[in-house]
Design a protein around this nucleic acid. Structure first.
Length: 261
DNA sequence: AGTACCACCTGACGGC
DNA sequence: TGCCGTCAGGTGGTAC
């Protein structure tokens, strides 16, 4: 479930592995992941050029490759990056593999085929076209408060709305609402200034902590509900009862009825 | 402007 | 053993 912390982890991974390495060739084994470019077009655009820098906004990772050429990567539900030398070490579902001149490979892997890749000249135009709003880790408190209070829908719907706040998905929305002790279905605009500021702080803390732990669920704090998702009758970490699930905006939502609301 | 619902997509899992 | 339904969940399209 690549959300902001996962994608930031992928960005740092690329940054510490394939950055400044030159692409030798590109193998596309699943053209469906390519959105606006053909496999030969992608190879022509990237071959002989190095990965120069990275940028992330919300769940989108941009990788610069030569002048005015950017790859945009969206990982869908099961996407990830893998850097390896020996082809035997390739991940299970490499859809696009960049072979580098240093002998290593960078694979865009996704089992569920919901990941997508674009070739761009202008990242900001891409963000506008896809209505991707301010990054959840860079938005200032004032802008966050204004956006929450202007939103006419539910709180969880707000947190997951990529146009309003980019990067939070189902899992971290639940975590932030749990830690802020808010009911996922309450109207966003019902929060007063103080509560909205508190929610902003909680979102920052949740995302920052998850990034520090490389978004590995087992490494998240015991006081969080995320590591308990999917268990049988998981206890609320505050000890006040059992976590429940319900559908909110069509998504499975984990919450504690006795301390959120 | 939001919500509901569907489609896309595949691996895991429970039931029979 | 294997077949089937269901679920996971990010995005995007359509209808309301």
């Amino acid at each position: 479930m690549p959300e902001l912390p996962d994608v930031e982890t992928f960005r740092r991974y690329l940054q510490s592995t394939a950055l400044h390495e030159t692409v030798r060739t590109v193998t596309v084994s699943e053209p469906r992941v390519l959105e606006n470019v053909s496999a030969p077009g992608l190879r022509r655009a990237l071959a002989g050029r190095p990965f120069e820098r990275t940028r992330r906004q919300g769940k989108v990772l941009f990788v610069a490759c030569g002048e005015a050429r950017w790859l945009a990567l969206h990982f869908g539900m099961t996407g990830r990056l893998a850097y390896y030398r020996d082809p035997d070490a390739a991940p299970d579902h490499p859809r696009v593999v960049f072979a580098l001149t240093n002998g290593y490979h960078l694979a865009f892997d996704c089992s569920r085929m919901l990941g997508r890749m674009w070739l761009l000249k202008d990242c900001d135009a891409f963000l506008r076209a896809h209505e991707i709003g301010p990054d959840a880790l860079r938005i200032e408190a004032d802008a966050f408060v204004d956006a929450v209070r202007a939103y006419r829908g539910g709180l969880k719907s707000f947190l997951m709305n990529q146009a309003r706040l980019a990067g939070v998905g189902n899992v971290y929305a639940d975590e932030a609402l749990f830690q802020a002790r808010r009911d996922p279905t309450e109207r966003a605009s019902a929060l007063d200034d103080r509560a909205a500021r508190r929610l902003h702080r909680v979102v920052q803390r949740v995302l920052t902590t998850a990034v520090e732990r490389n978004a590995e669920r087992e490494r998240l704090p015991r006081t969080w509900i995320t590591p308990r998702r999917g268990g049988d009758d998981p206890a609320c970490p505050r000890g006040c009862g059992t976590l429940q699930t319900k559908q909110v905006n069509g998504r499975t939502t984990w919450w504690c009825p006795s301390c959120q609301g």
